[in-house]
Design a protein around this nucleic acid. Structure first.
Lengths: 127, 127
DNA sequence: GTCGTTGCAAAGCGTTTGCAGCCTA
DNA sequence: TAGGCTGCAAACGCTTTGCAACGAC
C-alpha cells in the first residue's frame, strides 16, 4: 500500500507548479525550503516511484543528469537554453525523420533537442 | 611537446578502424588486447587530448556515457539500435527544425537521435 | 637527463541502497 | 501496531586526479 507523505506531496507539487522540467538538485533545493531535514535520497526515491506510477517522466539529456517533468499528454521535444541552462518544452515535432534512415533500418523512437537562447535571455542581452 | 606513445597510437587506431562511435569501455577492451597492462585512466586521458587536438569528437547520448568517433567532416546525426546497442552515423539532417521554435527563441544547435532496429538486427530476427 | 605519459589507487560526482527509526493508515 | 517511508551514511559506476615510476625525445 502506498502512503501519502509530506515529502511526496511537496515533491509532486513542485513538479506540477513548475512550467518546465527540473533537475533532482533543483527539486531538492526547492523542497528543502519546505522540509528542512529532507534528504536527497528521498527526492530520488520519490521521483522513481512517481515515474513508476506514470505521473512524471524523466527527460534524458545528452551529457547531463536527467530532468523531470509531469507526465506529458502529447509527443513533444525540448529546447535547452545555452545561457541560463533552463529546459523548455516544445509542443511540436518534425515529420520527415524516417527518410533519413539507411535501408533496412526500422525507426521506433526519436529524440530531438534544440539548443540556443531562450526568449528571456535574448531580451536580457538586448537590454 | 606531445609525445608519440604506443597507447596513444593504439587508441587512435581503434577509433579510426571502427566504422561507428565507441564507448570508453569498448575502446578499453579492444586496446587491452594489444597492450595488456593498459589502465582505463590512460584511455580517458588519450580521448581527452585527442579531442583537444580536434582529431576525435564525443557523441553525447541521453542517459548514457558518451561515445567517441573520429572528427566528423559533415553535419550528421546518429541511430542507436535498441537491440544491439550499437550507434551508427546517419549522414543526413532534416531542415524544418527552426519552425518548431516559440517566438523570440534563437536556435543555435540541435541534436537528433533516432532509435530502432539496425539492418543487422532486423535480418537476425527474420531468420 | 628532461619532462610528458603511464598505471595504480584514491577521490569526485550523481545516484542507489542498507538500515534503524519514524509515521501513516 | 504493521510495514511503507525517511534520513543518514556507505556503496555504486563512470570519470578524473595525485603521484611515483617509466620511457620518448
Amino acid at each position: 500500500m502506498i502512503r501519502v507523505t509530506q515529502q511526496g506531496n511537496v515533491i509532486r507539487g513542485i513538479l506540477e507548479k513548475s512550467g518546465r522540467p527540473l533537475s533532482p538538485q533543483e527539486i531538492y533545493g526547492m523542497a528543502r525550503r519546505k522540509i528542512s531535514g529532507l534528504g536527497i535520497a528521498t527526492v530520488y526515491r520519490n521521483l522513481k516511484s512517481l515515474q513508476a506510477d506514470g505521473l512524471i517522466a524523466a527527460v534524458e539529456l545528452p551529457g547531463q543528469p536527467p530532468r523531470w517533468e509531469v507526465a506529458p499528454q502529447n509527443h513533444h521535444h525540448h529546447f535547452l537554453c545555452n545561457s541560463c541552462d533552463k529546459l523548455y518544452e516544445i509542443p511540436a515535432c518534425t515529420e520527415d525523420l524516417r527518410q533519413l534512415l539507411p535501408e533496412g533500418y526500422i525507426l521506433q523512437e526519436h529524440d530531438i533537442l534544440l539548443r540556443g537562447k531562450c526568449a528571456a535571455c535574448v531580451a536580457k542581452s538586448n537590454s
